[in-house]
Design a protein around this nucleic acid. Structure first.
Length: 154
DNA sequence: GCCAACGTTGGC
DNA sequence: GCCAACGTTGGC
């Protein structure tokens, strides 16, 4: 079982939106980055756990824990001309973009803030991809050690 | 294959 | 709103 971190802008879809979703479940759609796509398509497995991270907001940080309930399948929003994430180059016979389905395990009791993670960037979290300079990946792997450490901060 | 231009991300 | 950093595009 592997661990991941998923970024989302709470103004668009935050942890509260996941909590209110039917069955507290959602498809992680709209990813339009090849590196992240490859993870969604190939690496993320049912039963894997993820940190739900709030980005581009007043208090960036980890807001919850999710579990993968369905492995990668084509992102239907890429086929829809009316959709904001429409990609005319993604064909149904040869889909370019993928999603996984996830469900809420729980919200964290508090936001584990980015600034707090940064306080450990020279020690326990020195390899955390999230903290790498200029990092823009919206889906990234987290090691078991990093996971355990981050969860222990809560 | 190079690389400048451009659009996007995301913290501050 | 600013701006650094990055990925993608497209001309050559």
């Amino acid at each position: 079982m592997n661990h991941w971190l998923f970024k989302s802008e709470p103004d668009t879809f935050g942890i509260q939106d996941l909590a209110k979703a039917p069955k507290q479940r959602t498809a992680w759609d709209g990813v339009r980055n090849y590196q992240a796509r490859n993870m969604l398509r190939d690496s993320i497995k049912q039963g894997d756990l993820g940190l739900f991270y709030h980005s581009s907001c007043a208090v960036p940080g980890i807001a919850g824990i999710v579990e993968i309930v369905k492995e990668g399948y084509p992102d239907a929003t890429a086929f829809d001309p009316k959709h904001h994430h429409y990609d005319p180059d993604s064909m149904r016979g040869e889909p370019r973009w993928y999603v996984v389905d996830m469900k809420l395990v729980r919200s964290t009791r508090r936001i584990i803030e980015l600034s707090e993670l940064r306080a450990h960037e020279n020690k326990s979290l020195q390899d955390l991809i999230l903290l790498r300079r200029g990092n823009r990946l919206s889906v990234m792997p987290v090691t078991k050690k990093e996971w355990d450490f981050i969860v222990s901060l809560e």
